[in-house]
Design a protein around this nucleic acid. Structure first.
Lengths: 176, 176
DNA sequence: GACTCAAAGTTGACGTGACAACTCTAGGAT
DNA sequence: ATCCTAGAGTTGTCACGTCAACTTTGAGTC
């Protein structure tokens, strides 16, 4: 906390370009999701997580862990989504707690459609313009950041499939 | 809007890793700024922009443009920062409008200290672990995203200097 | 059985961000 | 001079996210 060397123009340029790109990409993805399916990215994330755990018994803490969110954030989000009719909290434990989370029919409908649309958006905006080399470099760096900033957590959570093969964009990559 | 091919595990893996890394890095940068200097990233951005335009006559629209924010977001932010004593809105036009923005002494103090600390944080967390290849990949991708998503705007806004040289990530790091 | 305690979940307060509606002013056009 | 329109700035409303305080439940422990 005492080095105090301001960023060089090249460094600043890099940081600013990257942050701007992030902001634009994230905003565009959000806007597309909202326009096409009427849901926010946060709502989409919750819907997908609950949709995957299809035994209708997802607990708040599990949801929070899988999303990397805090409990309270999940609780607030669930309250809003319950009011919007996308999901319901179902009592399941003996005496009342341990509230399970279930999608309503509306929630199921929208998540089904949104998964495909969102995939297209991600590919179109984020993935298509990448060369394999660029993808490999970015993936390596991302993994480094995750390892450094969040060592306890999972390194690479499988999406939906049982992880049939290691991703293979360019050359062998080290396992976790 | 009708291709509907869900992301392959490899694609999803890439996207999720990238987004998680972004989230963790952004959160860590925010937290450091808050802990060390008591300001949010949004407040820091505003302070830096006003600090740079040191002729004390920055207008809201100029600020919004340079930050890539909406007018209303700037207005809300200025209101909060004014209440916190970081800056003041000074009437400058003839009849009352055209409110200029000036840093208070407190604002000047904090931004001076925060710029150095924030630079160190960015370098430590984001820049240091980058290899030249990774930096090149990210820069290229970011630039492509900006060109695609926001063609009208500036491609590479100069930070403060009159752009002494083109940035040069691989090889010797230029500049002072 | 009564006490204690930690985990699960909720709630409230507050800062943040997006969007739309509003006011005020300046500059024309007639 | 009057209208009218575009731009600047503000405000309200709502969704989002964090922090801290709170309640309830399920186990231990004596």
């Amino acid at each position: 906390m005492a080095r105090s060397t301001p960023l060089s123009p090249a460094e600043w340029q890099f940081w600013d370009t990257w942050m701007t790109a992030q902001r634009l990409l994230s905003g565009e993805v959000d806007r597309t999701l909202q326009r096409d399916f009427g849901i926010s990215k946060a709502e989409f994330s919750v819907l997908v997580s609950v949709h995957r755990a299809s035994d209708d018994q997802l607990r708040v803490t599990e949801l929070a862990d899988s999303l990397g969110w805090e409990k309270s954030r999940v609780a607030h989000q669930l309250t809003r989504m319950e009011q919007r009719g996308l999901l319901a909290r179902t009592e399941s434990g003996a005496a009342g707690r341990r509230t399970g989370i279930t999608l309503t029919q509306a929630g199921r409908d929208v998540v089904q459609r949104a998964i495909d649309g969102h995939s297209d958006t991600i590919r179109r905006l984020g993935l298509d313009p990448l060369t394999p080399d660029q993808a490999a470099a970015i993936r390596a760096w991302s993994q480094q950041l995750i390892d450094r900033l969040d060592p306890p957590r999972r390194s690479t959570p499988p999406p939906a499939e049982p992880e049939p093969d290691r991703f293979r964009p360019a050359g062998p990559t080290g396992a976790r």
